[in-house]
Design a protein around this nucleic acid. Structure first.
Lengths: 204, 204
DNA sequence: GTCTATACTCTGATAGAC
DNA sequence: GTCTATCAGAGTATAGAC
């Protein structure tokens, strides 16, 4: 169902993927059921399987759309820009992704938690390539003394960990903060401060 | 099966919980099956259900042991100690937990990802209480000018996010780093640097 | 205390009427 | 393109022999 032609097909395909995102992101691949997805999409189970040949196919369709979106903010980090501006922009965009697409974040988290059985290649391939490329840029900035010296790949990990935490552990974050908080607004401030302090070039 | 009496019961109970940890941490509650757990424990499925009345009971037994262990490092942060030493000690111990008990970390992550259906109370209760208590200590240290001023609860979140990332996203971390790395040793160095820079009291 | 056999439900997937 | 009916297998749980 890669190229839906009619409007009905378009609508149902979209409804299925939307419902599947909801279910897979909450229960993981094995914990999700076609019944739940079909109900969420307002279709019968056989009708769902008319659009996608199997549960696996629905999941794969979701994942393959995901990685690209996920990496866009890192791709957008400009090697020719101002280091601190570029890195802070990356942090901000990544946190916005967590805020606006928490289910996608959790879908990804579930996949990695389970050992990435359906994403191993993409991670060891496209993802690693992009990170290596950006690590070179970060290293150059460090060599030029424009940001503090740190392990560039772990620096990227730290951005992932801190931003995704607010999507993946949202329930815990809200429970611990208590009432009357805006977790993402506070996180934006906090991470701004954190990375500014971390990256400020050392006075030599 | 809270108080096993014979040695066989002790051994089987332990084997079940060990196997269940393996399965639940990888597939989440709904994705895990008693078949897998029974096989891992070397028991028949009915025999497993002799020790625990239901799948739910096995899962609950695991979770209730977990939270305490998980909070110990934070509890151990001494209000009377040297601020930087205490916080860095907490970071180190938390990362060691990730390294030594990655399955427990993933079990916890799965539970939170799924909206913490079986841990909501514990999180809004014991966990929040402990965090609030330690946040007061951190605030005092900040007021005394002994560490930099930051939102204390988000500071704790950042420690959780950064340390748990190395357990929960282990597959991704290793894939991106490539061969010839010791993720946890590198993380120890990296986080040491990160938090030292972050917390160094501002020259006023 | 432990096992075999089995009841019963859920799940992914298919067949075939409309 | 969509539905009803249905299947085979997996899933949780129980009964009852030993």
């Amino acid at each position: 169902m890669t190229k839906p032609r009619t409007r009905i097909q378009q609508r149902n395909s979209t409804a299925i993927l939307e419902a599947a995102l909801e279910v897979f992101s909450q229960h993981g691949f094995r914990g999700a059921t076609l019944d739940q997805i079909a109900e969420g999409a307002g279709l019968s189970k056989p009708n769902l399987l008319y659009y996608f040949p199997s549960k696996e196919a629905v999941h794969t369709a979701l994942l393959s759309k995901l990685l690209d979106t996920w990496l866009d903010p890192l791709r957008a980090m400009n090697p020719e820009g101002d280091p601190l501006t570029e890195i802070m922009g990356y942090v901000r965009r990544k946190l916005e992704l967590s805020r606006d697409f928490p289910r996608e974040s959790r879908l990804f988290a579930n996949e990695i938690l389970q050992g990435a059985p359906r994403m191993r290649d993409a991670i060891a391939g496209d993802l690693k390539t992009l990170v290596d490329e950006k690590a070179v840029v970060l290293l150059r900035w460090m060599d030029e003394g424009r940001i503090a010296r740190l392990h560039p790949v772990h620096l990227i990990f730290s951005i992932w960990a801190l931003t995704q935490h607010y999507a993946d552990f949202d329930v815990q974050v809200r429970a611990v903060l208590g009432e009357g908080h805006d977790p993402f607004a506070e996180a934006q401030d906090f991470l701004q401060t954190l990375f500014t302090r971390l990256l400020r070039a050392e006075p030599v």
